[in-house]
C-alpha cells in the first residue's frame, strides 16, 4: 500500500465524524456567535448593551465569584484527599477512587435532586446548622445553597486530575529531601508542592470552566433573583427568544474558556478526558 493511498483511507475514516460534528455542532456555535455581531444591526451593539446593562454585569460578576469560590473550596477539599490516595496501599487506593468515581458517574439530575432534599427548609443541612446555633439560614433558593451543591457536584473533577499528577510524582524525592535535613513540611513545600502544580492547574481550570457553564444545579437550587449566567442565557432564549443577546454572553463565556485553556497549556486532552479515563483505569 503506498503512502498516498494510505492517507486517502485515513481521511475517509475521519470524514464522517468530522462532517457530523462540523454541521451539527461547530456550525451552530459559529452561527449563534455570528448573530451577536449581526443582529439587529451589524456591529458591537449587543456587547455595548451587555456591559451597560447593570443586571447582566451583576450576573456575570456573581457567576465569576461563585465559580472562583467553588474552585478554591474543591481544591482545598481535594488536594489532601488526592495526596492520601497517592500515599496509601493499592487496596485502600481502589476504595478511595471508588468513592470519587461513584458520584462522578452518577446522574447529574439525581445528584441535584439529592441536594434539593438536603437543602430544603427543615431538611438535614438546616438541622445540622441548627445544632451549631445557626437557625433560619436560607439554603434552597439562595446563592449559598447553589455554591454548596456545586462544590459537591464538581468535587470529583478536582480529585481526578490531582490524583493523576500526584501518582506520577516520585516519592523518593521527598525521602531524599528529608534525609538531607529538610523538615517534613519543608520537604513537602519545596519538593512535592511544585511538582503537583500541573494537577492543581488542570483541576482548577476544569472546575472553573464547568462552574461558568453550569445550568442545571443553579436553575433548580438557586433563585431567579440571584441567577447565574447559565440561567440568564436560558431566560434570553427561552422566554425572550433573544438569540443575539444570548450569543453575546456565549461569546464572552467561550473567550474566557479558551483563554484559560491556553493559559494552562498542554491542550485539552490533558485536562478533561485524561482525568476521566485514567481515573477509571489506574485503580489497580
Amino acid at each position: 500500500m503506498n503512502s498516498a493511498r494510505s492517507r486517502g483511507w485515513a481521511v475517509l475514516l475521519l470524514l464522517p465524524a468530522l462532517v457530523v460534528v462540523l454541521v451539527f455542532f461547530v456550525y451552530p456555535v459559529f452561527a449563534l456567535s455570528a448573530r451577536s455581531f449581526l443582529e439587529p444591526t451589524p456591529g458591537f451593539g449587543q456587547y455595548v448593551d451587555l456591559v451597560t446593562n447593570e443586571t447582566t454585569v451583576t450576573i456575570l460578576v456573581r457567576t465569576l465569584v461563585v465559580a472562583l469560590l467553588v474552585t478554591v473550596v474543591t481544591l482545598a477539599l481535594a488536594y489532601p484527599y488526592a495526596y492520601l490516595m497517592s500515599l496509601c496501599g493499592p487496596g485502600m487506593r481502589t476504595f478511595l477512587l471508588f468513592l470519587v468515581l461513584l458520584p462522578f458517574w452518577s446522574s447529574l439530575m439525581a445528584r441535584t435532586f439529592a441536594w434539593i432534599v438536603l437543602l430544603q427548609p427543615s431538611g438535614p443541612v438546616a438541622g445540622f446548622l441548627g445544632l451549631l446555633g445557626l437557625d433560619g439560614v436560607k439554603l434552597l433558593g439562595s446563592q449559598l445553597g447553589v455554591t454548596i451543591a456545586m462544590t459537591q457536584v464538581l468535587l470529583p473533577f478536582m480529585v481526578l486530575p490531582l490524583f493523576n499528577t500526584m501518582s506520577g510524582i516520585d516519592r523518593r524525592l521527598l525521602s531524599a529531601a528529608h534525609s538531607m535535613g529538610a523538615s517534613r513540611f519543608r520537604a513537602f513545600r519545596t519538593v512535592y508542592l511544585p511538582l503537583s502544580v500541573p494537577g492543581v492547574a488542570a483541576g482548577s481550570v476544569l472546575v472553573f470552566i464547568l462552574s461558568l457553564g453550569f445550568w442545571v444545579t443553579p436553575r433548580l437550587i438557586g433563585s431567579p433573583q440571584q441567577s447565574l449566567v447559565g440561567q440568564l442565557i436560558e431566560t434570553k432564549v427561552g422566554k425572550l427568544l433573544d438569540f443575539p443577546g444570548a450569543g453575546a454572553i456565549s461569546v464572552v463565556l467561550l473567550v474566557i474558556t479558551v483563554v484559560l485553556l491556553l493559559a494552562v497549556g498542554g491542550g485539552v486532552r490533558a485536562l478533561v478526558p485524561g482525568a476521566k479515563t485514567d481515573g477509571g483505569r489506574d485503580d489497580g
Binding site: L18, P28, V29, W215, V237
Partner: peptide
C-alpha cells in the same frame, strides 16, 4: 482532533443554546 473534541470544551449552556437555535 481540535474540531472533534470541541463539544467537550464549550460550556454546557452555550452548546445547548447554539444547538437549539439552529
Amino acid at each position: 482532533t481540535g474540531v472533534l473534541v470541541a463539544p467537550m470544551i464549550v460550556p454546557g449552556i452555550v452548546s445547548a443554546v447554539a444547538i437549539y437555535s439552529v
